[in-house]
Simulated assay, not measured.
Amino acid sequence: MSAHDAVAALKQLGLSNYEARVFVALQRLGTGTSQEVSETSEVPRSQVYGAADDLAERGLVEVVESSPKRYRPVSLDAAREQLRSRIEREHERAFENLESVRNERADRTDEGDVSTLHGRHAVHERVAALVERASEQVVLIAGDADLLSEDVEAALRERAAAGIPVVVVTQERVVERRFADAPVRVVVAPPDRTRGFTGRTLLVDDATVLLSVRTDDGGEPFEETALWTADTRIGRILAEFIHAGMQSGFEGEYPGAE
């Protein structure tokens, strides 16, 4: 990695441009005066003082009280821990503030709305949240076992325990074993019946639907893109298609199939 790349990476971790350049320069020098740091970093000498002092406040640089004043970086392990702790603190502060201002309607769609999501964890969370709202029926088609996160599995179990009919269609027997102690109906279908589908289809109460597909080449960890709509006319239309497909493809195994 070049010095330029190192500066860019440090800026991503929250350092200013001058701070990052001074810190990288000190890694090269080991210790140095403002003049030496300026020459190595190409940061104006007048700006080195402020950047170095800010780095010292962050716990990344030691200030050697000599004449002239010299600066020395802490070890890379210490710097790594300092930056990690700072990021974690900022992360917690940011999400605490977001939680306090979060709109209670943020998780709901308006009539006719269709929302999209990107990322496996975001889709896991949305599937679990939609399942938790079920009051009539849940149908989840998830070919692979890794599409059933702990939160999704817990939501399915909770709804089934509450007396809500829950059906899970999968290609893997391990899913059947995971729900062996729960009143969840698991249909294990070979790939030719699911047509090798690698995403997931969720139907909740005949009006809430989520459809997702993998968005990579099948490697791990996979990424996922989903669209969903809750309690809408579009959802009811999609629900009819899902019911029809399930009844024709899983005759005798799907509730309502003749």
Rank of each mutant, 00 (worst) to 15 (best):
S248W: 06
H91D: 13
L60H: 08
E125C: 01
A106G: 10
L117W: 08
P183S: 13
S38Q: 00
P73S: 03
D107Q: 14
G252V: 00
G249I: 07
P68L: 06
T194D: 10
A94R: 15
A134C: 07
T40L: 02
R72H: 04
A122R: 15
V169S: 06
V175I: 09
M1A: 04
V166I: 03
R133F: 09
V174R: 15
E39V: 07
A79W: 04
L60A: 06
Q47N: 12
A155C: 07
R45P: 04
R84W: 14
V63D: 13
V74S: 04
E104N: 13
F95V: 00
T31H: 14
A20K: 02
K69C: 06
A257D: 05
P165G: 00
W228A: 07
M246F: 04
F179C: 01
N103S: 15
L203P: 06
P190G: 08
L156C: 08
G30D: 00
D77F: 12
L83C: 05
T116S: 15
R102E: 15
R233C: 07
G199T: 03
P68R: 07
Q171L: 02
A78Q: 14
E111S: 13
F241N: 11
L117S: 03
V188C: 03
V123N: 12
L210G: 08
L15K: 01
V131R: 08
H121F: 12
A180Q: 15
K69F: 07
S16R: 10
V188R: 12
R84G: 03
T116D: 14
D110W: 11
F95I: 10
D5R: 05
E253V: 01
E251C: 05
E81D: 14
I234K: 00
E153L: 14
A6T: 10
E224Y: 11
E99A: 13
R126M: 09
L130F: 02
